[in-house]
Structure formats: structure tokens, C-alpha cells
Write a protein that binds this DNA or RNA. Structure first.
Length: 286
DNA sequence: AACGGAACCTGAAAGC
DNA sequence: TGCTTTCAGGTTCCGT
């Protein structure tokens, strides 16, 4: 269930696990994860060493010194995990890279929404899913571009931010969190945001991503919220619980078939011009 | 062209 | 207890 911060952590982990090691063997099971590809394609990675990992939105592009590339998307339940090669593979392992030094990394993915594509990095970059990605929000956000983009759509701000062409890597959690931090109601039409609010939203997106990244820092192996990890978020999955700012109940609504969490008081449906300064201060976390 | 909704999957948790 | 329903942070495809 990973979004930009979780994928960023996954990329860092893979970098540390693979760097300096030789791939001794690679195999993938014939599942939806590899779509039409022949499982044998993954054998090409054998004998090569990692030369770099790039995170592109929620995708990771692994490049190897023999010219091979591996594109990975974690979907909803994908995760790379390390083990000793003598240990039994992780449950729901869909692919494995054997490394020298008696180590192996498994790609596990119970729900099979993730993807692994083996090919030359240049060819992988040319795939529509990568070509159409918007800019990476961690590298600074162009507020004018965002505002222009918002102006020419009738969709809600939530829907536009979920679109990977807007900013690459935001997902359901980060969008809820960023809108909350910016005090913008998720149902508002994107086109209704004045320039000042677009600026605040851009700032909030960066803050939310960095806060999540910090929360996972040193947490290895990473545990997602739904896996029983602590909820480190302000509104996500907190329906009915008090807003940390004003104390009123966080609401859950459905937009585009997915849950949105927000505080109806701090994030009004219409712009009121007034801001919630403070209110009954709820206990921080619990 | 842009948009909303369904489809794709499995497993865990909640409801009966 | 055990069966059924609901829900899950992803993209992609299809019809309007």
C-alpha cells in the first residue's frame, strides 16, 4: 500500500541491500505481477551488479552494470524483503534475486497489483506509465504550473492530486494529509482554489511527505499502517476521532471510489476567508 | 479529451 | 463458531 514515502524507503533499502553485491540468480513466478513476460527474462539479471536505483513517482527503476533494467511498482501490497538464501522465501514471494554472500531479496505481493518489468532501462523509461508522470513533489513544486493545471479541470482537488500526471507519487493517504494540512476541503473544485491556497497546498504536500518519511526513518523493515503499524497520520484512517487541531470528528467520505478523510471544520467545503486558529485541543496521538 | 466507474486480486477484520 | 460482507494506501481499461 505504498505511496511516495514508502517507495522512497523501499528504494533506499534495496540500494543498501544490493550495492556491491552480484546477482547470482533471478527468477519470477508466472503471475499477474509480470503480466505477459516470460519468467525466463528475469534470468538475464544473473551476473550483473546494481549500478543505481531511481524512484520515479511510485515506481523504482533498477539499473544494472550489464545493461539490464528492472522496473518495480509495489501496487497495494508489494514489498521487497531481505533474507538469508537458506531461509524459506517470504510468504507470497513472486520474484527472488539471489545475491552473493548468502543473501536473497524477495518481492512479495499477496494481492498481485504490483508489477515487475525486465528490460533495458531506456525502453522501460519509454513506457506510457513513466512518460506521463508529473514532476516529483520532493524536488520542489512549481506553483504556477499547478495553478494552471487546476484552472482547466472540473474535477475535485482530491481527484486532481490523485492523478499521477499532476504530481508523481501522491496517493490516497498523502492527498488526504496534504489537504488537511492546507485546510482545503477535498470536495472543492480544483479550479476554485485561489493562487494563495495553491501555494499553501504545495507547501503542505512537501510537509506531509517529509513528515511521513521522518516517521519511517530507522523503521526497518517498514510496516505499513494496515499491517498493524502505528497510525502516524493526522486524518487518514481516523474517522470519528477528534481532529488534532480543533477537536471535531474526522469524517470519511468516498471520492472516485476511495476513502477521503478530512476535518469538516478545518477544511470547509467553501472558502470562508476565516481560518480555524485553535479550539479544544485534543491530545496529540493516542 | 476528460471524466467516472468498474475491474483486477487476496487477506484481514467486522458483522451476523 | 463459522459464514458472509466489507474494506484495503495501486493502475488500467471501458463507456459516456
Amino acid at each position: 500500500m505504498p505511496e511516495l514515502p514508502e517507495v522512497e524507503i523501499a528504494a533506499r533499502q534495496l540500494r543498501s541491500w544490493l550495492s556491491g553485491r552480484r546477482i547470482e540468480g533471478a527468477q519470477a513466478a508466472r503471475t499477474r505481477v509480470i503480466r505477459g513476460q516470460a519468467p525466463a527474462r528475469f534470468g538475464r539479471l544473473a551476473g550483473q551488479r546494481l549500478s543505481g536505483i531511481e524512484r520515479l513517482g511510485k515506481w523504482m527503476l533498477l539499473s544494472f552494470d550489464g545493461g539490464a533494467g528492472l522496473l518495480s511498482h509495489l501496487g497495494m501490497t508489494g514489498k521487497w524483503v531481505k533474507r538469508r538464501d537458506t531461509d524459506t522465501p517470504a510468504p507470497h514471494a513472486r520474484a527472488t534475486l539471489q545475491l552473493d554472500g548468502g543473501l536473497a531479496v524477495d518481492y512479495r505481493d499477496p494481492r498481485l497489483f504490483g508489477r515487475l518489468i525486465c528490460g533495458e532501462p531506456s525502453a522501460l523509461r519509454a513506457l506510457p506509465a513513466l512518460r506521463e508522470l508529473g514532476p516529483d513533489p520532493l524536488h520542489g513544486i512549481d506553483v504556477d504550473r499547478l495553478r494552471a493545471l487546476f484552472a482547466r479541470t472540473r474535477r475535485s482537488i482530491k481527484q486532481v492530486l490523485m492523478d499521477q500526471r499532476t504530481l508523481a507519487g501522491l496517493g490516497n493517504i498523502q492527498v488526504s494529509e496534504a489537504l488537511h494540512r492546507a485546510r482545503v476541503g477535498p470536495q472543492r473544485p480544483a479550479a476554485s482554489l485561489p493562487a494563495a491556497e495553491v501555494g499553501e497546498l504545495a507547501h503542505a504536500i512537501g510537509e506531509s511527505l517529509r513528515a511521513t518519511l521522518r516517521a519511517y526513518d530507522g523503521d526497518e523493515p517498514i510496516t505499513y499502517v494496515e499491517e498493524g503499524g502505528a497510525n502516524v497520520f493526522l486524518v487518514y484512517d481516523r474517522a470519528g476521532k477528534p481532529c488534532f487541531t480543533c477537536g471535531s470528528a474526522v469524517r470519511r467520505i468516498v471520492q472516485g471510489g476511495r476513502s477521503t478523510f478530512f476535518c469538516p471544520v478545518c477544511q470547509p467545503r467553501r472558502r470562508t476567508g476565516r481560518r480555524v486558529k485553535s479550539g479544544p485541543r485534543a491530545a496529540r496521538r493516542s
